[in-house]
């Protein structure tokens, strides 16, 4: 932590007044993809999303498949083009910036993807994978390699992992590698795209604890994309619910996951089964009472 923290010391000194200013701010963000066929209209995936993340805050983004939640994360990362609207990071526009400017943003914004099997190159040693973001930001190779051991310590992986290939690790361990990689250059924001969805229950819990602990220690902000309300509830300060490219509800995690206003959020909440047969039966009855009457 310390070694990487020092690299950042050259920037402007900490300004306590900026603590309340959003770190990331999306305003009326639209993203569309080309439709099928030549003359098909473009498919609107995000329709005017406005959302902000403050320094050190976790904002959960919940929705079902096709709601556009992953697309929002990818738009922030510059992996999909923005049709209209703005994305601002620390006061600077970052939507549709040049490749060079986007590369420089790698210092501040990092990513952890869902699938720990395809987010690590199967042919690269773990050490090379972890050194990658450092080298990309111009850290000399020797210093990059020296920092890798400390990174492995931070995610509680053995140091000899450096010389091994991803396939020698389980899903949970790979996800730790992916998290370590995202932490390598002390970013200020990590976009987490369903980082625990592919993991076993007990592994999921330990990875979540790791994410919380890292946030406590470093003050990094998370944009946490997930389909699972219970995961989002445990990790997020604030939650936004996305349906067909629009935010239908937004609020503090505690209130939103206990007593949601919007019917869609209520439906999501009541559809997720709880691991208690009696309570689950009540929940099911409640869902049937609220929704099955008016839906076929």
């Amino acid at each position: 932590m310390n070694t990487t923290g020092e690299q950042r010391g050259e920037g402007p000194g900490p300004d306590l007044g900026t603590a309340h200013r959003p770190l990331l701010e999306a305003d009326a963000l639209h993203v569309s993809f080309p439709g099928r066929g030549r003359r098909a209209p473009r498919k609107e995936v995000l329709r005017g999303i406005s959302l902000s993340v403050r320094p050190g805050e976790t904002v959960g983004l919940v929705g079902e498949s096709g709601s556009g939640k992953s697309t929002f994360g990818r738009a922030v990362l510059g992996l999909v083009p923005v049709a209209s609207g703005t994305v601002t990071f620390d006061g600077t526009r970052i939507d549709n910036v040049s490749r060079r400017a986007r590369r420089a943003l790698g210092r501040d914004i990092q990513v952890v993807f869902q699938d720990p099997y395809t987010s690590l190159n199967p042919s690269l040693l773990i050490g090379d994978t972890l050194a990658e973001p450092l080298i990309a930001q111009g850290v000399p190779k020797e210093r990059a390699r020296a920092g890798v051991g400390a990174l492995l310590d931070r995610v509680a992986l053995p140091r000899d992992a450096v010389h091994r290939l991803p396939r020698e690790f389980s899903g949970g361990q790979r996800q730790r590698v992916a998290i370590a990689r995202a932490l390598a250059i002390s970013p200020r924001l990590i976009v987490c795209d369903e980082p625990v969805s592919a993991l076993d229950l007990t592994t999921q819990r330990t990875v979540m604890d790791l994410l919380l602990e890292i946030q406590e220690r470093t003050g990094v902000a998370y944009l946490f994309v997930s389909h699972d309300l219970s995961v989002v509830r445990a990790l997020s300060h604030r939650v936004a619910v996305l349906e067909r490219g629009e935010i239908v509800e937004e609020g503090d995690a505690e209130r939103l996951t206990r007593d949601p206003d919007h019917p869609y959020t209520r439906r999501l909440l009541l559809s997720a089964p709880v691991a208690d047969p009696v309570r689950q039966q009540e929940r099911r009855r409640e869902r049937e009472r609220q929704f099955d009457a008016d839906t076929p």
């Binding site: 990818r74 990362l77 510059g78 992996l79 490749r99 986007r102 590369r103 420089a104 943003l105 790698g106 210092r107 914004i109 990092q110 990513v111 993807f113 869902q114 699938d115 395809t118 987010s119 690590l120 190159n121 990658e132 973001p133 990309a136 930001q137 992916a178 990689r181």
Partner: peptide, 13 residues
């Protein structure tokens, strides 16, 4: 592949 996306996010040319 996600690892190519990840490399782009890290700022690799």
């Amino acid at each position: 592949e996600l690892y190519v996306d990840a490399a782009r996010v890290f700022g690799l040319s």
